[in-house]
Every structure is written in C-alpha cells, then in structure tokens.
Amino acid sequence: MLPVLEKHATRDAGQTVTKEEPVTTPVIRVVDLWKIYGEETDGSMALRGANMEIARGKVLALLGRSGSGKTTLLNLLAGLDRPSRGYIEVEGRNLQSLGEKGRTLLRRTRIGFIFQFFNLIPTLSAFENVNLALELAGKSTPAQAFEALESVGLKGKEKRYPHELSGGEQQRVAIARAIVKAPALILADEPTGNLDTATGLQILELLSSRCRDLETSLLMVTHTSMACRFADRVLRMVDGVVIPEDDGEAREIRNEKIESGFPAEKPRHHR
C-alpha cells in the first residue's frame, strides 16, 4: 500500500494540506454519501453528498446542530443503515459489498459504538456489558474485561448494574465496552450529551486518551464545541454536507449566527 498524502476532503476542487506526513489507507473513507428518507423527489435529505476521511489513530470531532445529519452519518458508517447514494470504505473495504453478515462482523471486531444515552443492557452488570463485546468478537477473556473497566476507573464496580451507576460511570462502562475489543474505529454519538460539564470533560479526556493509546480512530459527533479541544480535526455538518471547520463557508455560516444573536463558539484548538 503506497502512502498517500492526508487530505481534507471537501466538495471544492481545491484542497488544503496543513502538513505532509506519511499515512496509510484511511480507516474510513466516505464518498458522495446521500441519505434520503421517502421518495427521492420530495423526501427528506439527511445527507447530501457528504465526503470525508478519517486517518488511523486520529480523533475527529463532527459538529452540527440537531437535525443536521450527524447521527445518520454515524449509523451509515457503522453499517446499521444503508445510504441512498455514494459509498463508504472501512479499512479499504466497501461497506455495501460486505453484505449483512460482513457488516455484523465488522461491528463485532472493528467498530465500537458509544451513545449519548449510554445504551447499556440494563439486565447485565458492568462486567457483563463489557464482556458481551468480547464474547461477540469471539475473544472472551474475563481478564480483558476487568482490565478495560479498570482502565476507565471503575475497578471495584464490576458487579454493579446500570441503574446502580451514575451517568458518568455508565458512560465509562460504555467506553470500556467500546475499547475492550481494540477496534479500528470508535463512533461516539454525543458522548457527553447526557452529562454535566465537569463529567463530560472527564469523559472526553478519557475517551480521547484511550483512543490515542490504542491507536484507535475516534469520530465524535457533538453539538457542543467542548469536544473540539480534544480533536485532531474538527468537521462541521451543515444541512447534510460535511465541511471542515476552518473552511470559508463554515466561517461565513458562523458569522451569520453571531450576527443573528446565536451564542459564539469557542475558537477551535489546533493540535
């Protein structure tokens, strides 16, 4: 595989490369992705030709307001939904050509998922929730599950059930569940959406650091800019289109919001 230059994929022809570095095939590559609900002519378009790439071991934040199509994109990347047009490559393989079985296998072994509302199985303990991921991946080693829980700061709470844990603790279990199988990519949908600011910062710190340690790519979807300081890149979803945060169009949109009284967002932190 020849190293290729990292690019920011945009709809425009011109491309901006912040720096040149040797890279492998991106973990995720999205090309002209569309998702339309209902009839094409009068249906609702959740995605309108989204393009993006996620390099290995990188942390991406995807900002956007509610209804902009962020969650739809995540579901498509995880193979839980099917696009209307375009394609997705995961580690060089076309997701659609894998079939249902192949996509299921991918979710078991190569993709981890973290949700806003934690989505732990309520009838399983913290340990069992984490071990479930290993079991499905065919690598059930209880020690790994214990280690994963310890790494997220939940040693001693393995036997507790979700209703016995706080929101932050539940999200830690969800993180442990996602990272325990050492996936290539973690998709996090509003991981701090249901947490207070302080807890949310802790979670973001934990998530991003664990991903960097494991060289796991992380795509965080969020509507707050708090996550940006932990991201290598920030993208923005606007009406179904992915735009890099420092793109002129995005800046224009941001300015429009400031003029209309929309709270100004904090400046993006560059790494």
Binding site: L80, T104, N119, I121, L132, A133, L136, A137, R177
Partner: peptide, 8 residues
C-alpha cells in the same frame, strides 16, 4: 444495542 455491538 446488541445489533450495534455486532450481535446477529
């Protein structure tokens, strides 16, 4: 949830 984790 189980489907998202890879259960068939």
């Amino acid at each position: 949830i189980l489907r998202s984790l890879g259960a068939s």
